[in-house]
Design a protein around this nucleic acid. Sequence first.
DNA 1: CCCCACCCTTGACCGGGATCAACCGCGAAA
DNA 2: TTTCGCGGTTGATCCCGGTCAAGGGTGGGG
Lengths: 246, 246
Amino acid sequence: MNEPALATLTRLRTACSQCNLRELCLPVGLSVDELQSLDNLVSTRRKVRRGDSLFYGGEPFSALYAVRYGFFKSTLTSGDGREQVTGFYMAGELLGMDGIGADRHTCTLTALEDSEVCVMPFARVEDLSRHFEPLQRHFHKVLSREIVRDQGVMMLLGSMRAEERLAAFLVNLSQRLTARGFSASEFVLRMTRDEIGSYLGMKLETVSRLFSRFQEDGLIEVHQKHVRILDIAGLKRVMAQAQSAS
Amino acid sequence: MNEPALATLTRLRTACSQCNLRELCLPVGLSVDELQSLDNLVSTRRKVRRGDSLFYGGEPFSALYAVRYGFFKSTLTSGDGREQVTGFYMAGELLGMDGIGADRHTCTLTALEDSEVCVMPFARVEDLSRHFEPLQRHFHKVLSREIVRDQGVMMLLGSMRAEERLAAFLVNLSQRLTARGFSASEFVLRMTRDEIGSYLGMKLETVSRLFSRFQEDGLIEVHQKHVRILDIAGLKRVMAQAQSAS
DNA sequence: CCCCACCCTTGACCGGGATCAACCGCGAAA
DNA sequence: TTTCGCGGTTGATCCCGGTCAAGGGTGGGG
């Protein structure tokens, strides 16, 4: 009841109930009252500069992270050194769930632009989950959705042609940006052609060629990292051409 | 303290503490005492005949399932009807975690041989997790491991050549069978070439050809669904040839 | 027990996307 | 302002694995 002033300040600054991302992030769907139960979920915030990593594969696991702003990629490195991009993450999304299973992160999370995350010590997440049912429910949903997302990528990689994959990627990006109040039709890619290619299981040259083809077909306008979507319905049509390539 | 005899019977029959899979399944790592806290986690058991489905994509979600014996595949069907196999599951593995996120299953689980599962109503899983910390920890680990597994498949599909993928598949199968007390080197495939191909992102003809090639190379012996692994180290070498195909 | 539907194998050919290579453009740093 | 380097684009060629086709094995249901 009489915590030191500094602690109070930190608690307020990192309080979910004060956060403008609460509609996107872990507390989604909680009432204002319920939200206050989460106010010491976040211990601190942490800034990560473009190019730096939040954590590396192999590092001990201790916390989950919620993106406050910025953009991340997650990568997996196989025994023989091949690197695979396994996801891209933006504001409100949760990072680090891969580490729970073995108390050790399996993938590396790297910022693709200057970013900031909320640090949620995992012991605290579990504690609060045990005492606060809505958080428990929601946390389980977030974990489950990550599984579903990954399965979607498996479908992408396992049974779609290169152009379908890239179209699906653009549609997905556009949808997630829209949900965050950005323009659905015009954005700047935070990642390189190589990173897109790794994520989608193709070479960077193929990504580049497909961007050009989509442009010729009037679906998009590309200028390096600037993309404007001209025909989202057309992209969705490309996505579902239904003639498996593999 | 004086429950009806029938209830007692059911409870005992489905008690995790009596189950010979407890070393593989949800209760792994719990002491005998702790185990008894789980004894009403499982409501009933359910048999699923070969070819039948435990649940379908789109169906409402209500329970998780633990495989007691048998073999399952999970499949995802895309909007345009393409089907992708997203996993194979054997005794002790947990099914249905995809359904938590949207209270609705996204994939279909089909038995590839006559099987039986333990039905764990999800509300009960969450209840027990809240009151019993070791279960909570372990449940989170299981969810996280499913995420990690999926990311492994993404790596497979995104950056490995066909022969590497099939080698990885065989090595993985062999390891999981070993953990269950089966022979590491000789087994019967429960799935068709088509299902393996879908899982690994290649056509059934390619799977068949690669099996033949592995046989010529003295790595395995194949006869339809019977496989004998002759050179597991050789397979592991094939897995890690490190020259990306995509 | 037999048969037929389903699964598997193998061959011939083709094409999508990888590979190799050259060049361009933009942004950061001096 | 110039330069340097990374990232992107585009072309030429190749080859892995997809496609099409034919035939063979086999195990489960009637």
